[in-house]
């Protein structure tokens, strides 16, 4: 008994040959692996400050851009930078040419590995649609990540201009902006400003509050948003809240089949439901802060005409 205990304690203090060998091997592997981590190269580029205030070194003319949001893809195609796109998300369905680009996954769950495989020289992300962890990891892999955050009409125009500058398509970006402004100048003037509720989700009711870009679309089209500004841009709204606000129009960007019960319950007495002013519209047009919001404004304006 005594002897056994002595021996085991001896083993602990003085390592055997094999233990030393494995320890040395382990250390060696560790040093080897840490030396393998990628080294950042200094590529020539311009330093730009993005929407969340970070300095990004962007190549002079990026040729392999990954777009992580449908509105970014639409902007890139609109300004003629479509052939510089290396990858898009699963939700990038417009224009048709976007559907042929390699996919990198969803908005909230893009696949970093498939992104890196495309060897991009610039990744464009949105501040509230994409997870920050993904952009941080792409950054640590040495790829410039530029964040945009267009949350109003003016910011959408500014973002288009900025992306034009980043990709070397300033003049096309300017003409896209010009045509967007022209579209909104041709609108008909409404006799009165209708109050509008944007129905983004039925159960629970989710709407766009003041301070979201949708709010600007409603204003530009000649109406106004009934949902006041709050802690969230897209808050869950109390059913009673909708009844009390009793909007003239319900704007419903949805492709799903409507729930037949939705406007039969308490909502059947709403002004908008009674007068048949529940407009079910194309969500891609209305919910993507890109060049097509001008079409959304024109579409809404023509629907609001008495």
């Amino acid at each position: 008994m005594q002897k056994l205990r002595l021996e085991s304690s001896k083993n602990c203090i003085i390592p055997s040959f094999y233990q030393r060998f494995f320890f040395a091997f382990f250390l060696f592997t560790l040093v080897f692996l840490t030396s393998c981590s990628p080294k950042k190269e200094d590529k020539p580029g311009k330093i730009v400050i993005d929407a969340i205030g970070q300095e990004v070194t962007v190549p002079i003319r990026p040729e392999k851009i990954i777009s992580l949001a449908p509105n970014i893809t639409e902007i890139l195609f609109a300004i003629g930078a479509g052939n510089q796109i290396a990858g898009v998300t699963d939700f990038c369905t417009f224009p048709d040419a976007a559907k042929t680009k390699p996919r990198t996954g969803g908005l909230t769950n893009p696949n970093l590995e498939s992104m890196l495989q495309l060897q991009p020289d610039l990744i464009l992300v949105t501040a509230d649609g994409n997870p920050k962890a993904i952009s941080d990891r792409a950054k640590s892999a040495g790829i410039p990540v530029f964040t945009i955050n267009p949350s109003s009409w003016d910011q959408i125009l500014a973002t288009i201009q900025l992306i034009g500058e980043l990709t070397g398509h300033e003049s096309q970006a300017d003409s896209v902006i010009k045509s967007m402004i022209e579209k909104t100048e041709k609108l008909s003037i409404l006799p009165s400003k209708p109050s509008i509720f944007t129905l983004l989700n039925e159960k629970p009711l989710i709407s766009a509050a003041k301070g979201s870009f949708l709010d600007d679309i409603l204003e530009k089209a000649g109406g106004f948003n009934v949902v006041p500004s709050g802690p969230e841009r897209y808050p869950v709204i109390n059913q009673e809240g909708l009844l009390k606000m009793n909007p003239d129009v319900i704007l419903w960007p949805s492709e799903d089949d409507p729930d037949p019960e939705l406007f039969k319950g308490p909502f059947k007495n709403l002004k908008a439901v009674k007068s048949g002013k529940v407009f079910k519209v194309n969500p891609d047009l209305y919910l993507r802060p890109g060049p097509r919001v001008a079409d959304a404004v024109a579409d809404l304006n023509s629907r609001l005409k008495p």
Partner: peptide, 12 residues
Amino acid sequence: DPILSSILWEVR
């Protein structure tokens, strides 16, 4: 008022 009565009876 239909709106008030639906607030009371059908929502609350």
